[in-house]
């Protein structure tokens, strides 16, 4: 026992030395370490997600033929309606492309879409994120917007080999620009996550609202993406304003609380919009660039 305690002193010294070394280690090493442990966990997470899919499959297998027939009938109806819509969308898209060509306006719709299943959700008062089952192998890049239909879910923050972490709108590290309903001409506001108290629904915060803005009376005020930042396409719904638009302490501007448009814990599948060309921000943050990450830490 004495020996054990003697050794303990040495261990503490060793630990102290290690902590010192850890602080001074190059960030690349720490990044590698983190990445290694993430990759260690990834197969288990994937297995989990796939087994859940399998369970769902067997659950569906157990459905009666009657149910399946009615489901397929419903689907074909929806299909027909959508096909019709698609037709007009195609026309509009062509028209849009032509107009852009005429104006020499940069095309903003150059995204590749990757659909990904949600493996797990990890929310706390300090971070709000989901893990999705697509990663570097599928072409996911950090910073890419994550959407569900025309609703913004969040942004890819860290990409691993086969899984990626997505920061939700409500995560404090999330930020984007938006336009508010009823603001004519629209002016840019700032949206940032603020997580929220545990046991209460997470929220985002809208800041830098011009102080002469007032939301349209008696309506739910929608918050939509601007499409100007080169990350999110324009016109996606981010959320709705909750409560009043109130002046900030300095009273030069106003701010409001935003409820995300999608109940985030119900989502099983999301789409990642990967820009065709890397954005300047992405180039700036890429580790191969001479810019080092720790400058931002």
């Amino acid at each position: 026992m004495e020996k054990n305690r003697q050794g303990a002193k040495a261990s503490y010294v060793a630990l102290a030395v290690f902590i010192a070394a850890w602080v001074m280690l190059p960030s690349a090493f720490r990044r590698f370490n983190r990445e290694a442990f993430a990759e260690f966990q990834a197969p288990a997470l994937q297995l989990l997600s796939k087994s859940r899919d399998l369970a769902r499959y067997w659950e569906l297998r157990s459905r009666s033929d009657e149910e399946l027939i009615s489901a397929s009938r419903d689907l074909s109806r929806i299909n027909a309606a959508l096909e019709l819509k698609l037709q007009s969308t195609d026309d509009i898209r062509r028209e849009n492309a032509r107009l852009r060509e005429m104006l020499r306006y940069p095309s903003s719709s150059e995204y590749l879409t990757v659909v990904a299943r949600v493996i797990s959700r990890d929310t706390s008062s300090w971070w709000q994120r989901i893990i999705i089952r697509k990663g570097r192998n599928d072409g996911i890049r950090p910073g890419a917007p994550v959407v569900f239909g025309n609703h913004v879910i969040g942004r890819v923050s860290i990409v691993h080999q086969n899984v990626s972490e997505v920061d939700l709108i409500t995560s404090p590290s999330f930020r984007c620009t938006a336009f508010l309903d009823g603001d004519v001409p629209p002016r840019i506001v700032h949206v940032g996550g603020m997580a929220g108290n545990s046991l209460s629904a997470p929220r985002a915060k809208i800041t830098v609202i011009p102080n002469d803005y007032s939301p349209p009376a008696g309506e739910v005020t929608k918050v939509v993406t601007t499409g100007l930042g080169g990350v999110f396409p324009a016109g996606l719904i981010i959320g709705t304003i909750e409560g009043d638009v109130l002046p900030t302490p300095e009273a030069r501007l106003k701010e409001a609380t935003m409820v995300p448009s999608k109940v985030l814990d119900r989502i099983d599948e999301v789409s990642v919009l990967i820009p065709k060309y890397p954005t300047p921000g992405e180039i700036l943050m890429s580790p191969t660039e001479f810019l080092k990450l720790e400058e931002f830490k």
Binding site: N33, F40, Q41, W126, D167
Partner: peptide
């Protein structure tokens, strides 16, 4: 490190306390 790996907390904060 397993706990930290996929969470946005500073590297080593959980691991070093656990080691101690």
């Amino acid at each position: 490190f397993l706990y930290e790996a996929m969470r946005p907390i500073p590297d080593g904060s959980v691991a070093l306390v656990l080691v101690f």
